[in-house]
Design a protein around this nucleic acid. Structure first.
Length: 551
RNA sequence: GGUCUGUUGGUGAAGGGGUUUAACACAUCACCCUCUCAAGGUGACAUUCACGGGUCCGAAUCCCGUACAGACUACCA
């Protein structure tokens, strides 16, 4: 029995050939140096910070080179697939401004002419490639059961040999085509394995874009290419898809590095030019007990990309952070080119850290703070509103009701050379400005007075201030001079240097007087510029808030 | 067990044989500025690059070994 006959027996319905597919998916017509890259997750639901980082880089490189970035869904394992998993991935990518040129854009819809981009829809293509291999005698059906494989492994462990289906352990490799055909006809379950041409004693070199030259022994394992459910295994799907989709760069996590010899071999067997590989270090995190470990979707809320969306951390800030951990020279560049954005920066694989970087939420928040501080107040308002509409509808309605007022609040200490950096995310803004709204300034409030606690004294300060000194029309300088006059009248020190030198000579200073006014109007001793706050609040509200303390 | 990879301050890291007394950034601390806070400014923060050998006039940088960590070693991706 010939290999061709065996191949026809196994894949009777395959009518197309590899050549046919080469024509259907021709070489891409792209400018010199254009990179075609992809993000290829399993539909397990959410995108993890580490995957987002991969997706970010996989998108960035084509963007820099006028190439193509596509999204492929790797759903060949039913056990991993989650309901609405595809939608979850699409949403997460969308939320982080990772737009695709080709691929899956919704549960039902795909764009691009190199599809389908969902692996379960490509079964026929994989079969065509597998059939070719069988015809060439480069693949064979394997009838070994899970138990048999298990036994082989145990024996190998016992003999301290390399584990796997190879050499003389690859029992089904030695079956004749007649035996194979007979068992297939008999209905024995089987899978398809590659007849590996590799030699473990020979070396194969991978030129990784991030790590440089890595030497491996050749793969001599007869790996599974088609499972019993008829779907391909990752390695085989990668070969078929990335060849046909004309991927030039495979950018993926470094957990794949060990299987690259298999992938290289597969490309060699077909005579295809392999893509370039870039293996990215794992994103780590420090555990409670101080050890490093992979950022975990289960244990670390900050690992889920949706966390940032919920927190209202601007996408740009997350991207800026990803860029700083992706390319070590980005931060310095950004510092020198504050007006330029990520798009103006050219990514370089050589400027990547090889070992896994530690995920630093604090640094991300710092970047976020800086980013928000550089936005115009109206921009902050608009984005705050978008966030609030999704996560805090009560706040959203207040924001809408007092639009101009809110913008003025957000503008405090903003339009200056070094803007104030208070807000790390949209979700925290409310904590900083709630007291500006009467809707929130009700009920039992907790006032945190400073040095001056005596209620008689507080009453006296506020009463004198509002009756004698306060004038809505004062400018900032006049306003503060009046606070000083008030302090003087009540016996407090108006010169901070003098006060610090001789604190015992005074009951307190102008700072303490300011604090009383500040706390009475806001409950907090820590606020932005008090003059601005008083001006925005207006006399009526100030008076009303003072009443609580004036006897 | 095998195969790969990595290890520079609290963190991200630069530097790949000699102008590095190890850049820069985040964090921390101190001081300054200052009506509070934030911001900003100034300064402090690794006598040393996991450890042990070797090569060299000279090593964080090259070589060997050890330790530790991670990945892979599935009909998962």
């Amino acid at each position: 029995m010939t290999n061709k006959e065996l191949a026809d027996l196994i894949f009777p319905n395959v009518t197309k050939t590899i050549e046919d597919y080469e024509k259907i998916y021709p070489k891409r017509d792209l400018p010199e140096g254009a990179v075609v890259s992809r993000f290829a997750p399993s539909p397990t639901g959410f995108v993890h910070m580490g995957s987002l980082r991969s997706a970010f880089i996989a998108k960035k490189v084509p963007k820099d080179t006028n190439g193509v970035f596509f999204l492929r869904i790797e759903d060949t394992d039913g056990a991993r697939t989650v309901e609405n998993g595809i939608q979850g991935i699409i949403d997460d990518l969308k939320n982080f401004d990772i737009t695709i040129d080709e691929g899956v854009i919704s549960q039902e819809e795909q764009i691009g002419s190199y599809g389908p981009y969902i692996q379960s829809e490509r079964k026929e293509i994989y079969e065509t490639f597998a059939k070719y291999l069988i015809e060439q005698g480069l693949a064979y059906p394997c009838f070994c059961s899970a138990e048999e494989i298990d036994e082989i492994r145990k024996m190998q462990e016992l003999n301290k040999e390399r584990i796997g289906y190879y050499g003389s352990y690859a029992k089904c490799r030695f079956l004749t085509n007649e035996e194979r055909a007979e068992r297939i006809k008999r209905g024995d379950p089987y899978i398809i394995r590659l007849k590996s041409p590799g030699d473990f004693n020979k070396k194969i070199v991978l030129n990784d874009l991030v790590r440089g030259k890595i030497e491996f022994p050749e793969n001599d394992l007869d790996i599974v290419i088609i499972k019993s459910d008829g779907l391909p295994l990752y390695h085989f799907a990668h070969l078929v898809d990335d060849h046909l989709m004309r991927t030039t760069h495979v950018i993926r996590g470094d957990e794949w590095i060990s299987s690259t010899p298999v992938h290289l071999q597969l490309f060699q067997v077909f005579g295809f030019e392999p893509p370039k590989y870039a293996h990215l270090g794992t994103v780590m995190k420090v555990d409670e007990n101080g050890t490093r470990r992979k950022l975990s979707k289960r244990k670390d809320p900050e690992a889920a990309v949706s966390y940032y969306h919920q927190k209202g951390i601007p996408v740009e800030a997350v991207n800026l952070y990803l860029m700083t951990i992706a390319n070590t020279n980005f931060e310095a560049w950004w510092d020198q080119n504050p007006t330029l954005g990520i798009d103006d920066f050219k990514f370089d694989f050589k400027k990547m850290s090889v070992s896994g970087s530690l995920f630093d939420l604090e640094k991300l928040l710092n970047i976020s703070k800086t980013y928000i501080s550089r936005l115009a107040a109206t921009e902050v308002y608009n984005r705050l509103l978008v966030w609030a509409k999704e996560y805090d509808s009560e706040f959203a309605s207040i924001l809408e009701k007092y639009k101009d007022y809110t913008i003025s609040i957000l503008n405090i200490e903003r339009e200056q050379k070094k803007p104030r950096k208070d807000y790390e995310s949209f979700s925290t803004i409310k904590n900083y400005i709630w007291y500006m709204y009467d809707e929130y300034f009700t009920g039992d409030l907790e006032y945190q007075f400073g040095k001056i606690q005596d209620s008689e004294e507080i009453s006296r300060i506020l009463k004198t201030y509002i009756e004698k000194y306060y004038d809505y029309n004062d400018d900032k300088e006049t306003w503060f001079n009046k606070v000083k006059e008030l302090s003087k009248e009540l016996g407090y020190c108006t010169d901070m240097k003098e006060y610090r030198a001789n604190p015992d000579n005074y009951p307190g200073s102008v700072a303490d007087i300011s604090t009383v006014i500040r706390v009475a109007t806001t409950t907090s001793s820590m606020t932005p510029d008090l003059f601005e706050i008083l001006r925005l609040l207006g006399k009526d509200r100030i008076q009303k808030r003072f009443e609580k303390f004036i006897k």
